[in-house]
Design a protein around this nucleic acid. Structure first.
Lengths: 217, 217
DNA sequence: GGCGATTTGTCAATGTTTTAACGAAAAATT
DNA sequence: AATTTTTCGTTAAAACATTGACAAATCGCC
């Protein structure tokens, strides 16, 4: 049913947001919505919504709109949320632990299998029911277990070291919180970068820009 | 010196990365670099780098390239990192604490002044030397202290509640980790969203897309 | 100090993304 | 059952972003 054209990254980045709004509609018992109504709710243009959804096939119906539960299911499928990608988390520091506690992996298509760190004080302890292992045993673990994805919550230098091991063991998906640029070295991996420091700098930049233009007015 | 044309968001989002690479060059004692060399290092095109930097004025010199320390200083200034925006953090749960411990606010132009939460068990305790206050005292605090920015590390519903208070007290910069859409309601605020769950879904989507196209080959 | 090599700043061309317009299909209404 | 309204899917246009090309400026060398 899906059109065989590559989906642009701009569209992919909007899909999770559609998914969220559809879920909310569904939970509120709304079973039908028009692109216009959804656009107003989301602060987007109706045209964009129709064009985005049409990348994957015509889910709507003229004169009616979109069937909410159906569209929601289609989105889940497009996003691949029914997957069970096995994942490991690297670095059980503040950030890693926050991710562990805060993110619901299962509903996003991942199954967290193991956590690794190099700090002897926390190796052997348990977080959210998952034991923290010694990072030295990473290669061994990856060879005996199929690992699809890795969540990198460690500093740049450590990230560089573990990335090599992970890549050689066939890991091709990375959720990268470090400043190490994976995609520079490995061409065939899927990388999703989350750079918190960059994000905060961007905020600072925009606030400063606004302040300057306010002053200039 | 800066050209009076609005900088596009695409450019702004690249600036922190330039900043990072420039800092590294500077730390390595490299005081001069051409757009070509920087492009290779960053995996970008030389043309893009020249065009990006030129939005702010001609920092380079023909036949020579760019002076690293000078360019670094210019970038700091463009990003506004010498600012001292006063900030408060809302929500001292896992995520909030991780942000507190993990992010260096000062070097990104912010000064964290206070932390608020609604959980009685942690109100009064101290994180990183900053006392956690009762969120009920937020309005009072904001009225007696100038607050430029807020970091929202709480669930959607709570975010909605505090956003109103913050906006009414004049806060115009938001680092938003919640799923509440601030920019929908308030037009004149600067919002930088970090949606971890969306990010993970995006990774899942891209991995699934790759898997599908691998299978089709 | 002159000359070839280097490298920027900028303009033009290309590619991508968003918005607008409209025919066609289905629903709602009379 | 016919007509009006709604609303999609699609095509065309506009806006925006990236890449390529080259003249002009500066550097480094002889």
């Amino acid at each position: 049913m899906s059109k065989n054209k590559k989906i642009s990254m701009s569209v992919v980045r909007r899909l999770p947001r559609y998914y969220r709004f559809l879920l909310e509609l569904k939970n509120n018992g709304i079973y039908r919505i028009s692109s216009q109504a959804l656009a107003e709710k989301m602060g987007a243009s109706a045209s964009q919504i129709r064009q985005d959804l049409n990348c994957f096939g015509g889910f709507g119906q003229q004169g009616y709109g979109y069937d909410v539960p159906k569209l929601f299911d289609e989105l889940s499928s497009i996003l691949g949320l029914d997957s069970r990608y096995s994942a490991v988390l690297l670095g059980a520091g503040n950030l890693g632990r926050a991710i562990l506690n805060h993110v619901d992996f299962a509903s996003r298509g991942f199954e967290l299998k193991a956590v690794f760190d190099k700090n002897p004080e926390i190796i052997g302890t348990s977080i959210n029911g998952i034991a923290v292992r010694d990072v030295d045993s990473l290669a061994e673990y990856c060879q005996s277990h199929k690992v699809d994805a890795a969540f990198l919550c460690l500093p740049k230098d450590s990230a560089e070291q573990v990335a090599d091991i992970l890549y050689q063991c066939g890991v091709r998906g990375f959720w990268n919180f470090s400043h190490y640029d994976l995609s520079m070295k490995y061409g065939d991996v899927v990388t999703e970068n989350v750079h918190l420091n960059d994000s905060l700098m961007t905020l600072c930049c925009c606030m400063t820009e606004q302040r300057r233009s306010d002053g200039a007015e």
